[in-house]
């Protein structure tokens, strides 16, 4: 379980995140949505300990400030918005960086890497050089690396977590769905996913819990159909929205109304 209480973040003396508290139980896909500058990425970076914050963030009751990085690494993987690689690694080598942790002592490293690459749709890319891939392919390689790091969603009885910062923003629609399905499956198997997302329709379709941010505070939180309402979205994004429930596919359809 991930629990966040009274999270405050200030960057350059400006308070970006104002007293946020929420919990993500195990088996939950939690999406953080909101307009640009509402503090989505800042929240995620605080939750992963990348930036200084006030308040408390706990993963499985372990405070992320006081837990050793190696122990945290065994519990959660983090996918940054973009990753640049300093040296000419092959795709296989990049993904194998996810296996630095000691939890990998006796596991079948090569088999897991091959499976992870297949999952993200890059089965035959092992030999390719990372820097020669397209942006979308690089992002999927990084996702494979993060998946490999916390391969089993439940480990010694504890749920593990994936923190994903805009995991699908540079992907085509087919791969967007593929990645959302991987995240969904991870939660169905008992893990936790916390993702910053922009696509409201995909978010609604795959998430269990949505945190809608506005100006560094939680505007609303809960299940997709309760959070992604016409009123909430119009208040946060300042544009006219059309929200409908497609009964045939049991799916929320969210579209802006173009005047």
């Amino acid at each position: 379980m991930l629990s966040v209480s009274h999270l405050n973040v200030s960057l350059a003396r400006k308070q970006i995140i104002k007293d946020i508290s929420f919990e993500v139980p195990s088996g939950t896909f939690c999406s953080i949505v909101g307009p640009n500058g509402s503090g989505k990425t800042t929240t995620l970076r605080a939750l992963t300990g990348e930036i200084a914050y006030r308040g408390s963030v706990q993963v499985n009751n372990l405070d992320i400030k006081t837990t050793h990085p190696a122990e945290m690494a065994a519990l959660r993987g983090v996918l940054p918005q973009s990753s640049q690689l300093a040296f000419p690694f092959t795709v296989y080598e990049v993904v194998s960086l996810g296996q630095l942790s000691r939890t990998y002592m006796l596991l079948d490293r090569e088999g897991i890497i091959a499976q992870a690459l297949e999952k993200v749709g890059l089965a035959n890319f092992g030999r390719r050089f990372y820097q020669e891939l397209s942006g979308g392919e690089q992002q999927r390689v990084q996702l494979a690396r993060v998946l490999v790091q916390v391969w089993e969603p439940v480990w010694h009885g504890m749920p593990r977590a994936l923190f994903l910062d805009e995991p699908i923003s540079s992907l085509d629609i087919r791969h967007q769905i593929q990645i959302m399905k991987i995240a969904r499956q991870y939660c169905d198997d008992g893990g936790i996913v916390v993702a910053v997302l922009h696509d409201l329709n995909l978010t609604a379709a795959y998430s269990d819990q949505i945190v809608l941010l506005k100006d560094g505070t939680i505007h609303s939180i809960g299940q997709p159909q309760n959070v992604l309402t016409k009123n909430n979205l119009e208040a946060v994004y300042h544009c006219t929205m059309h929200v409908a429930q497609n009964d045939a596919h049991n799916q929320l359809q969210i579209t802006p109304v173009l005047a």
């Binding site: 122990e71 296989y92 080598e93 939890t103 002592m105 006796l106 090569e110 091959a114 092992g126 198997d189």
Partner: peptide, 27 residues
């Protein structure tokens, strides 16, 4: 951190199906 056993289950099935060497970028 002393996870000694090899863990089996849905996340480790297929590991024998793949022979990663020929197409892998492991140098």
């Amino acid at each position: 951190r002393s996870s000694g056993q090899r863990i089996s289950g849905p996340y480790f099935n297929g590991s024998k199906l793949h022979d990663p060497k020929p197409s892998s970028g492991d140098r």
